Simulated scan of single mutants.
Amino acid sequence: MGYVKLLFFMLYTFLCQLAFSSSLCPKDQALSLLQFKHMFTINPDASYDCEFSHPKTRSWNKSTDCCSWNGVHCDKTTGQVIELDLRCSELQGKFHSNSSLFNLFNLKRLDLSYNNFSGSLISPKFGEFSSLTHLDLTVTSFSGQIPSEISYLSKLHDLRISNVYPLVGYLNHLAI
């Protein structure tokens, strides 16, 4: 009987190691996140309004599963990236409409607040995140008009948008 318990324990240990060593995050999504990371510089002044800022993307690297990266949350079953929380991440630079971020089709929550996207326009491609329930672009230095494509986000429960200079146009808990 002790032999059976030992064999069961060894099998259980092997299966646990296999489960935890395998990558959940699809390679194309990890690559999209890494490309997104490299579009920006880390600058503490980019998140000056934050009480506690932290460059979350600094820990991102291809040697670890992207589901374990700071600010990245994945579906436990599929491994798809479903949430990206980059609030107060000290990101600075232009946010281009061809950003690899738009390859993350399964996003449900996206928080880019308190980063400096240097007067970039809010891309109409945000409207292609059909599963998005929360979008926070507060204090991001985006400029221009809110694109009408945002209205395509039929599952959106929470939309937060504001400008740093001047602080206008704050939309909080807007149901679309």
Rank of each mutant, 00 (worst) to 15 (best):
F9K: 10
D28S: 14
Q29T: 07
N103C: 09
A30P: 02
S53M: 04
K125V: 06
Y152L: 11
H173M: 15
S120C: 07
S162N: 15
K155Y: 10
C16R: 04
L34G: 00
L121C: 07
F95P: 03
S118V: 06
V168W: 13
C66D: 02
S68A: 12
N43A: 11
L104N: 01
T140M: 01
S113C: 08
L110T: 00
S118I: 08
I176K: 14
T57C: 10
H54P: 08
M10R: 12
S99I: 00
L24Y: 04
L91C: 06
A175C: 14
V168R: 15
H173S: 15
P44T: 07
G144L: 06
E90M: 07
S47I: 07
A19W: 06
L153I: 10
S63D: 14
F36T: 00
G2M: 06
L34N: 01
L156Q: 03
Y3L: 14
C74P: 01
A30K: 02
P26S: 08
K76A: 11
P44C: 08
D49K: 09
D136W: 01
V168E: 15
N106C: 04
C25R: 05
L6C: 11
N98C: 03
T138L: 10
P124W: 08
S154A: 10
S23H: 10
K125Q: 14
S154C: 06
L156G: 03
F126S: 01
N172A: 13
T41Q: 09
A46W: 02
